[in-house]
């Protein structure tokens, strides 16, 4: 079965490029441009993987992860989804989050699509 990836970025160009690249490699792709849309699509689209930017309108990348965790703790039926952070900011906070949260990989923009595809393959096949 085709794996579904939810890509979240506020830059429409990057979002389109990620979508095209992933589709060309046989993945099904859903997109979101801000934190709120991301939360909605996680519920409606049930993706297998999340590709997440850090700086996002309404709710940033970290807070999306924190919100998901809280929702799960409140008993909502939200599955644990693996996450690849794709960001232009080399933030040290990410190191801690990789260890603590559900972040599987951290890729710095501008990214090499080969590296991105490798990581995806490692996580969801």
């Amino acid at each position: 079965m085709q794996k579904k990836i939810l890509a979240v970025d506020d830059d429409p160009h990057i979002l389109l490029l990620v979508k095209t690249r992933l589709q060309a490699n046989g993945y099904s792709v859903a997109t979101a441009v801000d934190g709120e849309e991301c939360l909605k699509k996680i519920v409606s689209e049930k993706p297998d993987l999340l590709i997440l930017d850090v700086m996002l309108p309404k709710l940033d990348g970290y807070n999306i992860l924190i919100t998901l965790k809280e929702m799960r703790m409140l008993g909502e039926n939200i599955p644990v989804i693996p996450v690849i952070m794709l960001t232009a900011r080399g933030e040290p906070r990410i190191r801690e989050l990789i260890e603590k949260e559900d972040i599987q990989a951290y890729i710095l923009k501008p990214f090499d699509s080969k590296e991105l595809l490798q990581e995806i393959k490692k996580i969801i096949g």
């Binding site: 160009h13 990057i14 923009k109 501008p110 990214f111």
Partner: peptide, 10 residues
Amino acid sequence: RTPLTTIRES
């Protein structure tokens, strides 16, 4: 980094 990402990936 953001515009470079678009250029590179395009």
